[in-house]
C-alpha cells in the first residue's frame, strides 16, 4: 500500500498521480478516485501555490503532457 494525496475538483475527489515542477509552477496529473478514466491536469496559481487552476490553452496542455514524461523522483512509482 502507498499513501496518495487527494484533491477535490468540482466536488469530485482525485488522486494526484504525479507532480512536476516547471519554472516555479507545479503541474499535477489527476485520476478520479471513483473513475480512473476521469483524468485531468491542473497547475498551481502564480499567486497562491496551494491553489490549483485549470490550464489556460491547448499549448499549455501540450506542455504539461510533455512534462508528464519528465523524471520526477518524488512521485514516480
Amino acid at each position: 500500500m502507498r499513501d496518495v494525496e487527494v484533491m477535490t475538483v468540482d466536488q469530485k475527489d482525485y488522486i494526484i498521480m504525479k507532480e512536476v515542477m516547471e519554472n516555479g509552477t507545479s503541474f499535477v496529473f489527476l485520476s478520479g478516485v471513483d473513475n480512473p478514466d476521469d483524468v485531468m491536469i491542473r497547475k498551481s496559481s502564480p499567486q497562491d501555490p496551494y491553489l490549483y487552476i485549470p490550464l489556460e490553452s491547448e499549448e499549455e496542455v501540450h506542455l504539461a503532457t510533455l512534462l508528464f514524461f519528465k523524471q520526477n523522483e518524488k512521485n514516480d512509482a
Binding site: 500500500m1 475538483v9 491553489l51 491547448e58 496542455v61
Partner: peptide, 21 residues
C-alpha cells in the same frame, strides 16, 4: 483530456489529505 484540463473551478490543495492505495 484537453477539455477537462482547461475547465472547472480552482481547487485548494491540502498535502495532508491522503488515502491508501
Amino acid at each position: 483530456l484537453a477539455a477537462r484540463s482547461m475547465s472547472g473551478s480552482p481547487s485548494r490543495r491540502n498535502p495532508n489529505r491522503k488515502m491508501k492505495m
